[in-house]
Structures are given as C-alpha cells and as structure tokens.
C-alpha cells in the first residue's frame, strides 16, 4: 500500500495587494464577469466595488509556495473565489512549478476541500511520489451575496510538501456529521491541531498538546498551525476541523 506522508509544511500571509489588482484591463473584465455572475440572483455589483480591486490572485499567492525541487503532483484547494474567477490556476502552476506536475483544483466544499485534496493525492502515491498541496484563501468579496457569509480575516496560503518515503498520512472527510465528539474520541496523537470549527472541544481531546488554529482563517488556519510545529518533535499529529455550513468533519493524521 503506497501512501504519501508529510515532509514539510509552510505558510504565508499576503499583506500587499496583488499585482493583477492594478491591471485596469483585468479590472474591467472582472467587473463584467461579476456583473453577469450576480445578475441571475438579482444581485448587483456596486459601482465602486472594484475601485480599487482589493482581492488577491491565487496564481500570485501560490507561486512563492511552490517547492524548489521537482514534484509529480500539485493540487490546489480553495473556497472563496479570487480575482481571476475564470483562470485555470492549477494548470498555470504546472507551467511554473519544478517538475511540471500533474495538477488540478478542488473547491466548493468549504474548508473540507483541502482535506479532500489530500485524500485525492493519496490515490496517486504509487505513481506520483512527490507532491504538493497548496491551499489558499483571500479575504475580499467585492459584492454582497445576499446570504450570510464568513470570509477569512487575512489573505493566507499554505503548502504541504508530501512524499511517498515519509511516514504515511491518512485522511477522512465525514459528510453530514453530527457525531463530532464521538469521532474525535480516541485520537491517538501526541499533538492535535483543532480548527475554528472544533475549538470548543479542546478540553475534551486527550493529547500531549492541543493547538488551536486561528479561527479567523477557515481554510488555512489549521495548516498554518501545522506549519508552525516542529515536525521532528511533535510526534504523531492529528489535524481536525469541522465546516459548520456544509457539515463536514475532517481529520488528517500525520506520522
């Protein structure tokens, strides 16, 4: 049985505007795209919504997260759309990433998308032994969607560098989950990272160390916390989160 394991985790924040945001031609195209996107819902784009463009480009955010050495597989996970809603970002990353990896993107699953991406990547372990998961979230939505929405507080991105010769990782994404407490019982881990969706359970988790992720970063918070750990001393690590909107319980175990 082949499986990928975690070699390294890195995270970044992006305090400066995207270069693409300053491109007036792009802003005009984005305005058309968003106007047409909103119209069927009876929504409109405010006249000043894109002056300036405040959001980030996932292509730009991902480039500094790319590995220096060749990889065979790259998967991009995201939830909030970026300022290039028609761009095949993961395909672009294949072009600029060492190794010209096979790539694709996973979305439409809230914060569970990164965990699902890991599950999918495990299916490639036998043939694509060097892999990188990039999860990104940007904090600007230039329209009122007319429904409650939770946006990240900051633009953030993470990369998990995975390899088939590292201690194997395992991932579960449990849909329609009410049984959060039962599922987290008996976690066999030295270090547990809990996302904002599970922060209330911190006292119930039995582990040498429990780390609470930044709850203001729904997609990247847990992985940012993972990246802050010393992987050599953290022992067996469990990363867990719960998407309250789509009701996915997600658990990833490393080591």
């Amino acid at each position: 049985m082949f499986a990928l394991g975690l070699r390294r985790a890195v995270s970044r924040r992006y305090p400066t505007p995207a270069l693409l945001a300053a491109d007036a031609g792009h802003a005009a195209r984005l305005s058309t795209y968003l106007t047409d996107l909103l119209a069927p819902q009876g929504l409109t784009l405010a006249p000043d919504a894109l002056t300036p463009v405040r959001g980030q480009s996932y292509g730009e955010m991902a480039v500094p997260l790319l590995p220096a050495d060749p990889v065979d597989l790259l998967v991009l996970a995201y939830d909030v759309p970026d300022i290039s809603p028609g761009r095949a970002v993961s395909t672009y990353l294949t072009h600029v990433c060492p190794g010209s990896p096979m790539s694709f993107a996973v979305s439409d699953q809230g914060r569970a998308a990164a965990f699902t991406a890991l599950s999918l990547m495990q299916t490639y372990a036998a043939t694509h032994p060097r892999a990188v998961l990039i999860a990104v979230e940007q904090a600007d939505l230039p329209y009122d969607p007319g429904v409650p929405v939770t946006l990240p507080a900051a633009h953030a991105g993470i990369a998990l560098h995975l390899a088939a010769d590292a201690p194997p990782a395992s991932v579960t994404v449990t849909p329609d989950s009410d049984a959060v407490l039962d599922s987290l019982d008996g976690l066999d881990a030295a270090t547990v990272v809990l996302g904002g969706g599970l922060a209330g359970l911190a006292d119930d988790v039995k582990a040498d160390r429990v780390v609470l992720a930044d709850p203001a970063q729904p997609m990247t918070g847990v992985w940012e916390a993972l990246a802050a750990l010393d992987l050599d001393t953290a022992g067996r690590i469990v990363v867990a989160d719960y998407d309250p909107a789509l009701r996915y319980l997600c658990v990833a175990t490393f080591g």
Binding site: F104, A105, V106, S107, D108, Q109, V173, P175, D176, R247
Partner: peptide, 13 residues
Amino acid sequence: LQHASAFAVGHHA
C-alpha cells in the same frame, strides 16, 4: 445525497 462527500474538481477547462 448528504451522506456523500461532494466537491468540485477542475482547472482543466
């Protein structure tokens, strides 16, 4: 189908 894990895949046009 709430019991299924549902997600989008793409960027292959």
